[in-house]
């Protein structure tokens, strides 16, 4: 069986592509991936998705999108893609359990949280180091913790964590924040949030004890090292695109983001990309959904343009 379209990923981009291709009668197969639902699953209240006047919880928004796509016949399976072969038709997508063949593939694998890359960070992951405030904030009730990063996600995590922690120190290696003005203002207005700018994380203590007791910070201007006592460190320093499957097969930029042109087309005919896997600029739920729609329409047009014998094989 050769499918019309396989969608890899199940965040807002993948699910919107599923909705549109399902309504176009393309019977999409969605392979949802390990972090099913994408980054929205780790957020709380989403206040900037149009149509929800009171905001909506990220996981609820994803649940609605899934149901809507399934209503029109999208098939969603819980599995992870382990390999792809995109050099010839049919395109081949493999998981640990099965091999699928398709005329088009829509890549919506998104991006995952980036880590600092310190050995101590890896050792203490789950024991005080975390990349998910909504998952782990609960464990730090009444304690002093730190958030590393200066973007919108760092502000959101810091604000969320003030519900549990007595003090949240935002550690950022630059003198200015990258976060949007509205998020910065919210964070600056919160009395529980303190700031350590121009500070880089050298080390997280204490790997011997198996728990976080403090972090060593280095002032990027003076080189001075100071110790910040914290029992938790939340890393929110951005994301890396999930593109390791596609190395050597699809053109990407120096940071690993898939390159698209003329809409959602990648360098490989019949392969389209949408959402954060091809966008390091906007990275919003609504832009992911928007590009998911573009990828679906582009895939539909591509399919219509295929020679007759390839359309029905």
């Amino acid at each position: 069986m050769i499918r019309n379209v396989i969608i890899i990923g199940s965040g807002p981009a993948g699910l919107t592509a599923a909705l549109y291709t399902a309504r176009a009668n393309m019977q999409p197969l969605v392979i949802e991936g390990l972090e099913a639902g994408g980054q929205l699953m780790l957020t709380t209240l989403v206040e900037n998705y149009p149509g929800y006047r009171e905001g909506i919880m990220g996981p609820d928004l994803i649940a609605d999108m899934r149901v809507q796509a399934e209503k029109f016949g999208a098939e969603i399976i819980q599995s992870q893609v382990t390999a792809v072969e995109l050099c010839a038709l049919p395109l081949v997508v493999r998981t640990a359990e099965a091999e699928f063949r398709a005329r088009t593939v829509i890549i919506a694998t998104g991006a995952s949280a980036r880590l600092l890359g310190l050995p101590s960070e890896r050792t203490l992951m789950g024991h005080g180091v975390s990349t998910c405030a909504t998952c782990d904030g609960y464990f730090f009730r009444g304690q002093e913790i730190a958030v590393v990063g200066g973007g919108d996600s760092a502000m959101e995590e810091a604000l969320f964590l003030t519900k549990f922690a007595t003090k949240v120190t935002v550690v950022h290696r630059r003198g200015t924040l990258r976060a949007s003005k509205i998020m910065q203002d919210k964070a600056r207005a919160n009395a529980k949030i303190e700031w350590r700018l121009n500070a880089e994380v050298d080390q997280i203590n204490d790997t011997t004890a198996g728990e976080v007791t403090s972090m060593m910070l280095r002032d990027v201007n003076t080189g001075a090292r100071t110790e910040l006592p914290v029992s938790g460190v939340f890393v929110a320093i951005g994301h890396t695109p999930n593109t390791s499957l596609f190395h050597g097969q699809i053109e990407m930029d120096a940071n690993g983001y898939l390159l698209t042109h003329d809409g959602a087309k990648t360098s490989v005919p019949g392969v389209f990309a949408c959402g954060d896997v091809q966008d390091h600029v906007y990275r919003q739920a609504i832009t992911a959904a928007g590009t998911g729609c573009m990828a679906a329409l582009d895939a539909e047009r591509y399919l219509d343009g295929l020679p007759e014998h390839l359309q029905t094989a």
Partner: peptide
């Protein structure tokens, strides 16, 4: 057992933690 991040899978043997997996991981 100092669990401060979930999901966490702790593997016990003979009453001790011998290994652990923190966060989402494929079944394999």
């Amino acid at each position: 057992f100092n669990v401060r991040g979930i999901p966490a899978l702790l593997l016990f043997k003979g009453g001790l933690v011998v290994d652990q997996v923190v966060g989402l991981m494929p079944k394999e």
